[in-house]
Amino acid sequence: MPHSLVLNLLPQSPIPSQFLTGRHLHALFLNLVSSVDRELGDRLHDSGADKAFTISPLQAKLNHTNRTRISDHTLQWDHEKPIPIGTPCWWRISLLDDTLSSKLTQLWLNLNPAQPWHLGPADLYITSIFGTPQLTQPWANATTYTQLYEQASDNERQIALSFCTPTNFRQGNFDTALPTRECVFNSLLQRWNKYSGISLEPNLTEVIFPSFFNIRTSLAADSRSKFIGCVGEISYRIMGNIEPLIIKQINALANFALYCGAGRKTTMGMGMIRRMNMTKNNFD
C-alpha cells in the first residue's frame, strides 16, 4: 500500500546548508527506521537492498528563495544559506510497500513531539504528520494499489506531469535528463510491477506522445557529486484507436507517480513528479 507522508518539522538550531543534501536526509530517514527496527534500518543502508521508499528535499517556509523557479510546482532542492532556527519546514516520505509502512506506523502512533531528531548538528522536532489529502499540502496522500487501479480513468487521454525536483534517467552506461515517454512511463511501470502485485501491459509507451512541455535542465550538487536533471511540466496524450483497458493502465501509472517518482536517486530527493490538472495548457 503506497503512502505519501508529509512531516512538519521545526529546527531548534540553524541547519547548515551542507547538511541539507540528499544523502544527509537519506541518513535521517534511516535513523527514523532504525528507531523502531534496527535490523531493517541496517538492511536499508545496504547499497544493494530493495529501497521501497522515496524522500523529498527539505522544504523551508521562507519568504524568499535562493533560486529561480521554472513553475509554482517545483520544489527547493538547493540551499545556499542555512535554514534559521525556528523556521517551519516540511519533508515528504513515500513508502511503497507494507513492510516499511507497518514498521513506521509504530513511530507515527507513538511520536514524541519533544524528541529531537538530528540533521547534522541541528536538532529537529517533528511537530505533526500529514498522511491524508490536505488543502494546503498536495503531497500528502494514501491509497491501495487496488484503489489506484480501479479508480483510474479508462477514457482520460491527457496525462499532465510536473517534474518537481531534477529528474534523470539511466540509459545503458549513461544518464539522460530528457523525459521521453519511454524513460518516464517505463520507470513508473517497473516500480508498479515490483510493488503492486497487479500486472500491466509491457508496451504501454507506444501510444503516448508529448503534446505540451515547459522544461529545462537543472543542477543538484553537493560536495561529492553533481546531478543534472529535468524540471518543469510535460503533458502527454494517448493517441490512436486504443482500447479502454490500455488507457486505464496508463492513467493508473500517472496517478502512481505521486508516490514512486521516476528515474534515479528518488531515495535522495530527486525525481519527484506528480500528476496535474491541465486546461488550455495551464496546470491547476
Score class of each variant (00 low, 15 high):
Tyr125Asn: 13
Ser225Gly: 06
Pro133Glu: 09
Arg170Pro: 08
Thr167His: 11
Thr146Met: 02
Ala140His: 04
Gly131Cys: 05
Arg157Cys: 08
Thr144Gly: 04
Ile126Ser: 01
Asp222Leu: 02
Pro133Val: 08
Ala140Asp: 01
Trp139Leu: 14
Ser223Pro: 02
Met239Ile: 09
Thr143Lys: 01
Val207Glu: 02
Gly172Thr: 09
Asp222Gly: 05
Phe185Ala: 04
Gln190Phe: 09
Phe209Ala: 04
Thr136Lys: 06
Ala142Trp: 03
Leu135Lys: 12
Arg157Lys: 15
Lys226Pro: 03
Thr144Arg: 10
Thr205Gln: 09
Ala122Tyr: 09
Gly172His: 02
Ile129Trp: 00
Thr176Asn: 07
Gln151Tyr: 01
Leu188Asn: 08
Thr180Met: 02
Lys248Gln: 15
Thr144Ala: 04
Thr217Gly: 11
Ile208Met: 02
Leu124Tyr: 06
Gln171Pro: 04
Arg216Gly: 03
Thr132Ala: 14
Ile198Val: 11
Ala160Pro: 15
Thr165Ile: 08
Cys230Val: 13
Phe213Trp: 07
Ile238Asn: 08
Phe185Gln: 10
Ser196Asp: 06
Gly172Leu: 11
Ser199Lys: 12
Tyr236Asp: 09
Ile228Asn: 07
Lys194Trp: 01
Pro133Asn: 05
Arg170Ala: 14
Ser128Pro: 00
Phe174Ser: 15
Thr127Trp: 00
Ser196Tyr: 01
Trp192Tyr: 03
Asp175Ile: 03
Phe209Ile: 06
Thr146Arg: 13
Leu188Glu: 06
Arg224Ser: 15
Phe169Tyr: 10
Gln147Ser: 14
Leu245Tyr: 03
Phe174Glu: 14
Asn214His: 12
Trp139Ala: 08
Asn168Leu: 13
Ala142Met: 07
Pro166Ala: 04
Gly240Ala: 09
Pro133Ile: 05
Pro210Gly: 07
Asp123Ser: 06
Ser153Met: 00
Gln134Thr: 03
Asn251Lys: 11
Tyr145Phe: 15
Cys164Arg: 15
